[in-house]
Design a protein around this nucleic acid. Structure first.
Lengths: 202, 202
DNA sequence: GCCTCTATTGACATTTTTGTCAGTACAACT
DNA sequence: AGTTGTACTGACAAAAATGTCAATAGAGGC
């Protein structure tokens, strides 16, 4: 009987650093969306990602590192989503506004925004500013013919409303006995109303 | 030299149970508003309230007890604020809507709502439902003459917008280089616009 | 004044969460 | 095949957060 090479205790998945980080961040995002920021614990994130918590530390240095990386990732995804949506259908403003609304109304985006706000990291939204300015420069101002400040106001209101709907729409509509899609409909009506009003007015 | 009674090691403040709870909850609320839900730690709350953390446990049983008590207190305050505001100036709908808006736009209320939502405690807002229904029954439906569902929709939209402005208005306006009061103005314009539109329409 | 009740405290104990480290296993390169 | 680099793991250590308990000290009633 020859002595065999000792079998590995455990068979491991070995990812590229990028894939490993992505895997962990995806798990963390799922936790954030489903259970809130408080649920982003080292052990829980690691478990959800299918790795050991020391591995999370290895890739991000600390739990705070995971948090900031997650914030940045989500913001970047949000920005890309908005830009590609605006890009695909070369929209008139109305459709552009819908794309903007869609992006911010998404549960993940809304919760990200609330998280940033509650933790005082709202300043991290700078990427969002760039996106907004890109939108305004390339679309809104052209389509409406209104001045830049009015365009910024419009987009700002759009975002506030969208995030509000994404965050509170489900709970509020359930609480008040209204259809779950109602908040979104109402908000879009409102935006369209303002749009047509401003087109008439100026 | 007579033997004196040993002086107390520390001089204590002794409150009624209600006052003690109130003191602690006020400190916790300040922490919540200024630093977010994550900042509600046993030691920090106790420190802010000027007591020892064992004392917090004594009055609330656990840190979770503090959290739920704080939620309930804030919700109750919010409800009272709305109802008294509506009560004071026997308002036409426009003013009533402003009072509603004011109450929910307040930083504390907005952050409370976001906190409840993120932690999955949105269902706690039941008191809010009662308030909304009270408003609708006593004011909105009468003033506008629209049907009940439309009134509920209107109030719901009002709340979503107000909380959105309270939560994200400051950060977004700063980020986009607009005056800090602009989000509020825009939102109120929007609400008034919808109001007059619905009064014309039905 | 003395007694009783309990809000309050300090010190300790437990649990939770985060971080460290030496060693192991997978992949690429020679 | 051997070598090298590093993603990965298990076990341990440290820190942070929560909770327990006996003792103390205000305040009101006797």
């Amino acid at each position: 009987m020859s002595i065999e090479a000792p079998a590995p205790k455990t068979t491991r998945v070995r990812r590229t650093p990028e894939a490993a980080r992505e895997n962990i961040l995806a798990a963390a995002e799922a936790l954030l969306v489903s259970q809130g920021p408080q649920a982003i614990k080292l052990a829980d994130v690691a478990k959800a990602a299918g790795v050991v918590h020391a591995n999370v530390i290895h890739h991000f240095g600390s739990i705070a590192g995971v948090e900031t990386a997650l914030m940045e990732r989500m913001i970047r995804q949000l920005a890309e989503k908005v830009l590609t949506a605006l890009d695909r259908d070369d929209a008139v403003l109305g459709v552009g506004a819908q794309a903007l609304f869609d992006a911010f109304e998404a549960k993940g985006a809304a919760r990200l925004a609330a998280w940033l706000e509650l933790t005082g990291e709202g300043a991290r939204m700078t990427l969002v500013r760039e996106v907004v300015e890109a939108i305004i420069d390339t679309r809104v101002a052209r389509d409406t013919g209104v001045d830049r400040e009015a365009a910024v106001d419009f987009v700002m209101l759009n975002i506030i409303l969208a995030v509000g709907v994404g965050l509170f729409g489900p709970t509020l509509s359930a609480l008040l006995g209204r259809p779950s899609e109602r908040p979104r409909e109402l908000a879009l009506e409102l935006i369209e109303g303002r749009l047509s009003a401003s087109q008439q007015g100026g």
